[in-house]
């Protein structure tokens, strides 16, 4: 079931100078997020990712288009009704944005206070959330007494206080070190699995998408340029921007300097074999080459696991009788996607 749906959403900001055009931060976006998904949105700085989440959370009005959350078009609601919508959507931030003047408990309590929950009930809920994020002993601490990872845990607990069905995470791990990032990503995964909360993750790091997202949208200049299941986008990127993002974690066909180094080291032919779910497996590739008497060396690339599915881009240096190599490559070409590298 669709939980968040965007139709031709546009958002422009007034021109910075009188003579300039207005800034089109979001330039016609259509998007459907299914309930229970972890939906990733990736893009370079200025692509409009933060603007998009702020529109979904109704922190800013759209210029045109419609946004439906839980079946309600939020673009036509009054400010008072929007408060209810926001209360039903959790949000976490890159800089955590904790209330420094309040204790950890006070931070988590605030959304409940705003929602008018009775005092006793709030105390129970706060204790429950502290336990969920593993900070039961930090309730009386102030944010400046916590590490970055702990702060983000508080941010997550605060976002979950009112039991929202949707959680928006804007660069939630970008200010954290790799290990803490894994911790927080693990917690987000638990939020999704154990509580069934739909998560929209904004990031410019492909690793975050790889380890978390079930679906991904690639944004560029206020538009969604590519959209699909994370596995498909990683294994078959189409757009230039997508390919650049994918190449940060997946080695495809070697190019440029890397290729020169490889070519210098391996005098024979070099090919890249794309191992995909619908094609033949690695074993079959290696068996065919061995049967033809070709010496094989894996020199670049590897196998990737995404959402429990695997694919690989194997760059192989082939040695042996040139005619035999050519025959073997020709035979394989009919059964698997091969790119001639050299």
């Amino acid at each position: 079931m669709t939980i968040v749906s965007l139709r031709d959403v546009r958002k422009s900001y007034p021109a910075p100078r009188r003579s300039a055009d207005p800034v089109a931060a979001i330039d016609g976006v259509d998007l459907d997020v299914d309930e229970g998904d972890i939906f990733g949105i990736i893009g370079y700085s200025g692509a409009g990712k933060s603007t998009l989440v702020r529109l979904i959370n109704a922190l800013e009005p759209v210029t045109s288009g419609s946004i439906t959350v839980h079946g309600t078009d939020i673009t036509t609601l009054s400010e008072k009704d929007l408060r209810g919508v926001r209360s039903g959507i959790g949000m976490i931030f890159q800089q955590f944005n904790l209330f420094n003047a309040k204790t950890v408990r006070g931070n988590i309590d605030y959304p409940l206070l705003v929602a008018g929950v009775a005092k006793a009930e709030r105390a129970t809920r706060v204790a429950e959330l502290l336990d969920f994020v593993g900070l039961s002993d930090k309730g009386d601490n102030y944010p400046d007494q916590l590490s970055g990872g702990q702060k983000q845990r508080v941010g997550i607990a605060r976002a979950l206080a009112t039991s929202p069905r949707i959680l928006l995470a804007d660069e939630a791990t970008s200010a954290l070190d790799p290990e803490t990032t894994q911790d927080v990503l693990g917690l987000l995964r638990r939020v999704n699995r154990e509580l069934g909360i739909t998560i929209i993750v904004i990031t410019h790091e492909m690793e975050v998408i790889q380890s978390l997202a079930t679906r991904v949208a690639v944004m560029e200049k206020g538009r969604v340029v590519e959209l699909g299941d994370t596995f498909d986008v990683f294994s078959e990127p189409h757009e230039r921007a997508t390919k650049r993002f994918v190449s940060t974690v997946v080695k495809g066909v070697p190019q440029g300097e890397e290729l020169e180094v490889l070519a210098a080291r391996h005098p024979g032919r070099i090919v890249t074999v794309a191992i995909r779910e619908d094609g033949i497996g690695q074993a079959e590739v290696f068996r065919t080459l061995a049967a033809a008497g070709v010496a094989v060396e894996l020199i670049y690339g590897g196998v990737h696991d995404i959402q429990g599915r695997t694919f690989g881009n194997l760059t192989l240096a082939l040695g042996g009788e040139p005619a035999a190599v050519a025959a073997a490559v020709a035979e394989l070409s009919a059964r698997v996607s091969i790119t001639e590298v050299k």
């Binding site: 702020r54 922190l59 926001r86 209360s87 949000m91 944005n97 209330f99 309040k102 705003v114």
Partner: peptide, 27 residues
């Protein structure tokens, strides 16, 4: 007071008046 903190308050569903008195001034 950082704009992010104000955004966090509004994202929690707080009114602007509450944000002013319970977040901005204490911060």
């Amino acid at each position: 007071v950082s704009p992010g903190v104000i955004e966090a308050s509004r994202a929690a569903g707080a009114s602007r008046l509450r944000t002013m008195f319970q977040i901005v001034i204490p911060e």
